[in-house]
Amino acid sequence: MSTQLDRAVLEAAAAWYVDLRDTGAEDPLREAHRQWLAQHPAHRQAWARVEKLQRTLDAAPRAITRSTLDSARATRRQAIKALSLVLVAGVAGAAWRYRGGVDELTADYRTAIGGSAQATLSDGSLLRLDTASAVDIRYGDQLREILLHSGEIHITTAPDAAGRPFIVHTRHGSIRALGTAFLVRSDDRQARLGVLRHAVEIRLAERPGQPTRLDAGQQVHFTRWRAETPQPLPAGADAWTRRLLVVSDWPLRQFLDELSRYHRGRLSCDDAVAGLRISGAFHLDDIHAVLGNLTATLPIRVRYLTRYWARVEAAGKSDI
């Protein structure tokens, strides 16, 4: 069995690997590295892992590895996009970590692009899912846990007779509810948390020892390593639960990016119009109608390259 190695030791081994990458056999760094190895059995164990990892990487044929890995990852993403909503009962299980794309395929609750869903969980808590979202429910004796694989959810917690804490895990960190309603969004890059009532506590994946508290009316973006400064929660942040997108003074490009989360296809815009400002409430059930409405209020027009690829341009622009 493998013994637990400290993250710090592994990080040091990785740093050694980087430093030694381009040094010759006679470099004084080599001697320093030998001393580091001699210092502690854990250092030698970590270095053995470096060598093991290197053997695996060396066994991969250079010419095809990158394209195969990238394409496999892209295929899994596509498969997730194509899925429709499935509702199944909760599942208990082992410790969780994010597994790029494969978990969405087997999640307890998931929605397709443009879809939405809601469910009352066994303790009475209410779960709402926004577009292209996937979660697992893990209710056990000690904890009520939700795993948000991707997308956005709205949670209204119910008091629990057994007093079990309520925790939402994302790949970037965990959020512990302190009797609340809140929103969590999580994707490849970062997670976003907005608190609607009471307060929650965040623990970043790589800084689990330092919880920070976020109160009602606040929003924060975070990654595994870092949380940004909290900001006021924008009005209408939870409007998607009513199938609306509510925006105030957004640049057109940001608006289209947000809209494209609900759209099976591509929405892009020319740089010339990207900075136009938009305010209003838009129905998410008909993206084409939203785009149509925009042309009535802004000096733009929408060109459909295909039904799934719309481009927004300046109104005067002639056809290519």
């Binding site: 394209s67 195969t68 890995l69 394409s71 496999a72 597994r99 494969v102 978990d103 395929l105």
Partner: peptide, 17 residues
């Protein structure tokens, strides 16, 4: 199931490449 999805996506991608 996760292993199966992963293996299938890698095998297919490898053959295509």
């Amino acid at each position: 199931m996760v292993d199966m999805f992963r293996r299938r996506s890698i095998e297919q991608a490898y053959l295509e490449v």
